[in-house]
């Protein structure tokens, strides 16, 4: 039973990826075709989740939106990890001025609200999915700096690091050979948790009109477009909202499940 969160998280994440991939070749209806006759239909056998105010099938729109959601999440988290993890490892291995500069800079970035960052970037570059991804990625960097720093500190206290130094191994080689493999699981868990935060952030930015234009279907954008019809029919807003909630839940479960699964102290219980 202890693996239940991991399995549930994997199923939801896999479902999301599958929906995004399938949408590249097939969707039940054209996700961009405006059809005035089928406006705001309730869920039925023909349209499983109903249609929006333009008469577009919500299942099709949701599948295409999953692509943007995943892409934003992957790029933002990957970018943040690529920048943040080496900085965190460097700060954990070399105490002193370098470490202080990295950690203080990271704290300042952490204190800056992500939304403010997004508004600044949009003001400079215009609203787009790329701008939103950049803003989310930058806001996620300090999370990885902190996580990598703490994990590196605990690894550096172990004797096998001293053993490697006695063996004449240089600091960069120690980082690659000993630190990275041993902090990897912790970072994997963090990546999964950050992924769900990124999805939520992207939905929020889209809803505020700071991310995707109307031409790019994203779940947050779908909610924004549906809010005017909320009292006519709740479906067009409810469907993307639930999709966002499910995706966030899925990646949180995945992160928690991974943490439990990889924790060697819990191994005997498995």
């Amino acid at each position: 039973m202890r693996r239940a969160p991991l399995v549930a998280g994997l199923v939801i994440a896999a479902g999301l990826v599958l929906a995004a991939l399938v949408s590249l070749v097939w969707t039940p209806y054209d996700p961009f075709l405006v059809n005035g006759a089928d406006r705001l239909l309730r869920p039925s056998l023909a349209h499983w989740l109903g249609t929006d105010r333009m008469g577009i099938d919500l299942v099709s729109r949701l599948m295409v939106g999953a692509r943007t959601t995943l892409m934003v999440g992957v790029l933002a988290v990957l970018g943040a990890a690529v920048v943040g993890v080496p900085l965190g490892i460097a700060a954990g291995m070399r105490r002193g001025v370098l470490s202080d500069v990295i950690l203080r800079a990271s704290d300042i970035l952490f204190a800056l609200p992500a939304l403010l960052l997004a508004i600044l970037l949009v003001a400079a570059k215009g609203a787009s999915v790329a701008t939103a991804t950049t803003a989310i990625g930058i806001a996620t960097i300090p999370v990885f700096v902190r996580m990598a720093h703490g994990a590196t500190l605990s690894v550096m206290a172990l004797d096998y690091i001293d053993a490697a130094r006695v063996a004449g191994i240089s600091a960069p080689a120690i980082a690659l050979r000993h630190v990275v493999p041993n902090i990897g699981p912790i970072l994997g868990v963090q990546a999964s948790a950050s992924f769900s935060t990124a999805i939520l952030a992207e939905a929020g930015l889209s809803y505020l009109g700071l991310a995707a234009s109307a031409a790019t279907p994203t779940w947050g954008r779908m909610m924004r477009d549906a809010q005017d019809d909320l009292f006519l029919t709740p479906w067009p807003a409810l469907v993307p909202g639930l999709a966002i909630a499910l995706a966030v839940l899925g990646f949180n479960l995945l992160g928690d499940g991974l943490r439990d699964y990889l924790d060697p102290r819990l191994k005997e219980l498995r």
Binding site: L158, D159, Y160, D162, A164, R177, H178, P181, N182
Partner: peptide
């Protein structure tokens, strides 16, 4: 060369 106290910690 050096041998450390606890091999649970000194071997990666």
């Amino acid at each position: 060369q050096m041998v450390f106290q606890d091999p649970r910690s000194s071997l990666d």
